[in-house]
Design a protein around this nucleic acid. Sequence first.
DNA 1: ACTGAAAAGCGCATTGC
DNA 2: GCAATGCGCTTTTCAGT
Lengths: 153, 153
Amino acid sequence: MITLDTIDKKLIGYLQQDAKKTTKELSFLLGLSNTAVYERIKKLERQQVITNYVALIDKEKVEKNFMVLCHVKLNQHLKKNILQFEKEILKLEEVLECYHVSGDYDYIIKVFVKNMDAYRKFLVEKLTVISGIGSTQSTFVINEVKNTTHIVL
Amino acid sequence: MITLDTIDKKLIGYLQQDAKKTTKELSFLLGLSNTAVYERIKKLERQQVITNYVALIDKEKVEKNFMVLCHVKLNQHLKKNILQFEKEILKLEEVLECYHVSGDYDYIIKVFVKNMDAYRKFLVEKLTVISGIGSTQSTFVINEVKNTTHIVL
DNA sequence: ACTGAAAAGCGCATTGC
DNA sequence: GCAATGCGCTTTTCAGT
């Protein structure tokens, strides 16, 4: 079992906000030595608490700011259909997230495309061609109020 | 208007996968010199195409892997209610994402907590105390099939 | 805009406290 | 478990094309 003390949690918090912070800066913020901070980061990486470091981009600036939450229902809950659907979804680059959920629908997927036309194309050419899909229902995002990757511990 | 050429798009792709890649590695991958890559990255940062660099963590390892998609309906669509709700949501650390959406509900929020008990507490103590909220409907995530921050250009 | 080389700063490993 | 040293690499700058 992994146990994180207060300093680890603070450290993870800082790195979730800015991965480019140097150990020097972090050691100042945490009131620790350079080496201590370095060892803690390496440990968190080794334990796979920190999985990776990524650049985040502005979706508007790259014209991928048309976002849709699409509810998907399979027509039969056969293991074969489930595995097939999940395998195909992983391949679709327009789908950033996919969750198997409780309730009326089986999956909720988050899709990013350029505009409505691109979405229509995605729907007819990529999503609904997956075998086993019963129905879909698209919920369009009018405004992104909040979107962060920062999990507060 | 920002225009990105093929090299920029490739570069953004690499950095979205691994922000720790050195300019040396990138220059090899892109077939450019160190400085050329460096200048392109700096330009993308200046243009705010790349907004920031973050560490991603394993939600299971930090015990925040109980995820709920909660649909929220306001009782009246007054500008006052909307602004109030959006302001309060920004403050809730359990809410990582919030979208104003079309359809039967007004907002969909993505919530990360430890377990069902923590979610119940979040619901009664933090979410439903926001004035103007009409109703909520919680959709529980059974399994995370896909979750990436990588937008393919 | 790209190249190449040279300076400044940081990461990383090691030593000793 | 922390401070200090030193090497190597990376980032950053600069002159030149």
